[in-house]
Each structure stands twice: as structure tokens, then as C-alpha cells.
């Protein structure tokens, strides 16, 4: 679907990104993960057809960015970190203008604009001037303009920046709802956001791609943490006894009890949690969930980028 090969960009003598190569399959949500200044926005601007690369190639559904820029741009929707909005226009007028600019005819737009308004939960805002909208709605209008022409690839640069917690949840749900139909590439420096939303992660640091894969693959490769969160159902004391009797467990850090569930933070001496699960099941304790402790992706990220050791 998206094939990026040896993509490099210099701003004058300054290297912004170097030798990026990756592929994203159709319908997947991929996340560009990196610190501020890692080169995420530059990479996205190139993929959106805004900037041209110094070298390398980008193909979207077989269309090459440099050889057929117009054909490629019509297949892409792009929301930069600051939505590109004309404050004096109404939401409807703005979406129609950009739809026409991207080659849509009036009849298609008459059908498509209400669809997009509904999809992005902008009902009732169509005739409102964009300059009077709150940041959350402005971001929604930004997404609406990016999908109005039904692009194959949707690029969202820091879509949750500046949003409050409620708006973040709404934006996350909106992005998830767009996955499947559109291939989506999101950039963020907030690890939990990418973790929550994306199927595939691309870790960028100092302009280079340090790692790529699913969250589980990256954790398996880069997280050397042996910290786990265990949630059990039933008698928490029985569970605590089994845990204490299992030599594999070196430390029990926390214990929380809510609604019949007990959660323990554990450290293991080796990466073989199945041994613990077997002991719990044998003792009749219901294992509800066993997962790497929160913060595992952060640790893996630090390991990938060489900025710190494992927790």
C-alpha cells in the first residue's frame, strides 16, 4: 500500500531524515513514534506531497510521489499539527472548497460533505464560521478536510496535541473508526497514544528509523523488563499465597482490590510467566489478565533509541 524506500531529506546542510524504508499495508493504522525533532513531521510532509525528498522514493498504491505528484496528492489526506483552516469560511464552505480543489465535482460533494460532517461529529456546525470553533472542533474540521476526498492514505501529525482528556478519547475513537477504510499514519511523541491507537509502530530517532513492528514485537525485542501486572478473580489471599510460594516471583510491588478483582505488580526472575500462571490455575485462582507492566513501551523506546537502560 505505502512503500517508502531509502527516503532522505536535508534542509541545506542539516539532515532531517535519513534512509527511511518501510511498508504499511492497506487499512492499517501505523504510528510514527519519536521525540520532538526526531524528523516525524518532515517525513509526514514528504509523504503528504508537501515537501520533496532529497533522495529516495515514496509510492502510495503504486503511484510515485516524484513521477506523478498530482495523482499521488489526490490519494492522500493530510492534517498537520496546526489544522490549515480559513477562519472566515464556514465549515461547509471550507470542505466544499477543498473538495473541489482536489478534483471532486459538485454532485459528489453534495453527497460527501454531509457524510464527512457526520463521520467527524460536526453536526450543527456546518454553517458556523471556523474562526468561532473551539480547538477540539477545529481538529475535527481538520480531519474532515483530510478525508473529504476519500483518500487511500490519511496522515495525521500529532492529532491530539492541545486537546483535553475528553477530546483525546473522542479523537482516538474517531481515528480508530477511520481505520480499515483508510490506511492511517499518525505521528506522536506521546507513547501511550500510539500504543492505544496503532497496529504498527515506526520508531524514529535523530532522523533514522530505529525499529518497526507491532507493539508486541517491539516489546519482545527491546523490552528487557521482567515487570508484569497480574489481575486475578476470586480470593486475593489465595492468590497472594501462591505468588509468595512461587520462586519465580522476586518482588510483589503493589496490590489493588476492586470489584472482585485483585491486581498485583510483580517482578519475575526470568521471562517465563507461564510457570506462575500454571501455579495459580492449579490452586484454583482465576487468572484474568497477565501483561507487561505499564511503562514497558517507554522502556523499550528508550532502549531502541539508546537513551536509557531497561527498567
Amino acid at each position: 500500500m505505502i512503500e517508502v524506500n531509502a527516503l532522505t531529506k536535508y534542509y541545506g546542510m542539516t539532515r532531517a531524515i535519513y534512509d527511511l524504508s518501510f511498508t504499511i499495508e492497506k487499512g492499517r493504522i501505523a504510528g510514527f513514534l519519536g521525540l520532538n525533532g526526531a524528523g516525524k513531521s518532515t517525513a509526514l510532509k514528504i509523504l503528504a506531497g508537501y515537501l520533496l525528498p532529497t533522495s529516495g522514493s515514496v509510492r502510495v498504491a503504486g503511484t510515485d510521489l516524484v513521477a506523478q505528484p498530482d495523482a499521488m496528492r489526490s490519494r492522500i489526506g493530510y492534517l498537520p499539527e496546526k489544522p490549515p483552516l480559513y477562519d472566515e469560511m464556514t465549515v461547509d464552505g471550507y470542505l466544499k472548497y477543498l473538495g473541489k480543489l482536489r478534483g471532486m465535482d459538485a454532485a459528489t460533494l453534495a453527497r460527501r460533505v454531509p457524510e464527512v460532517i457526520e463521520q467527524t461529529a460536526l453536526q450543527g456546525k456546518g454553517r458556523q464560521r471556523i474562526g468561532t470553533l473551539s480547538l477540539g472542533f477545529r481538529k475535527r474540521v481538520g480531519i474532515a478536510q483530510a478525508i473529504v476526498h476519500d483518500p487511500d492514505l490519511l496522515i495525521l501529525d500529532e492529532p491530539i496535541s492541545g486537546l483535553d482528556p475528553v477530546q483525546i478519547v473522542e479523537m482516538r475513537n474517531l481515528v480508530r473508526s477511520l481505520g480499515g477504510k483508510h490506511t492511517i499514519l499518525i505521528s506522536s511523541h506521546i507513547l501511550t497514544e500510539v500504543e492505544e491507537t496503532c497496529d504498527q509502530l515506526l520508531v524514529l530517532d535523530d532522523g533514522e528509523l530505529k525499529a518497526q513492528g507491532t507493539e508486541a514485537e517491539l516489546l519482545a525485542r527491546f523490552s528487557h523488563s521482567l515487570n508484569f501486572d497480574l489481575t486475578v478473580q476470586g480470593d486475593p489471599e489465595a492468590a497472594a499465597e501462591v505468588i509468595a510460594a512461587t520462586p519465580l516471583v522476586t518482588e510483589v510491588r503493589t496490590g489493588r482490590f476492586t470489584d472482585g478483582y485483585a491486581t498485583f505488580g510483580l517482578s519475575l526472575s526470568k521471562d517465563e510467566p507461564a510457570e506462575l500462571v500454571a501455579a495459580l490455575v492449579a490452586a484454583g485462582v482465576g487468572v484474568h489478565r497477565l501483561e507487561p507492566a505499564r511503562g514497558a513501551l517507554e522502556n523499550a523506546f528508550l532502549s531502541m533509541t539508546g537513551r536509557g537502560g531497561a527498567a
Partner: peptide, 14 residues
């Protein structure tokens, strides 16, 4: 200044 130039640069126009 407003970064709305993005809408023109990313549209299929010359």
C-alpha cells in the same frame, strides 16, 4: 504565516 498554504501544496494542482 497561518500555515494554510498546506492546503494548496498538498492539493493536486501545480
Amino acid at each position: 504565516r497561518e500555515d494554510t498554504i498546506v492546503t494548496l501544496y498538498t492539493a493536486p494542482i501545480s
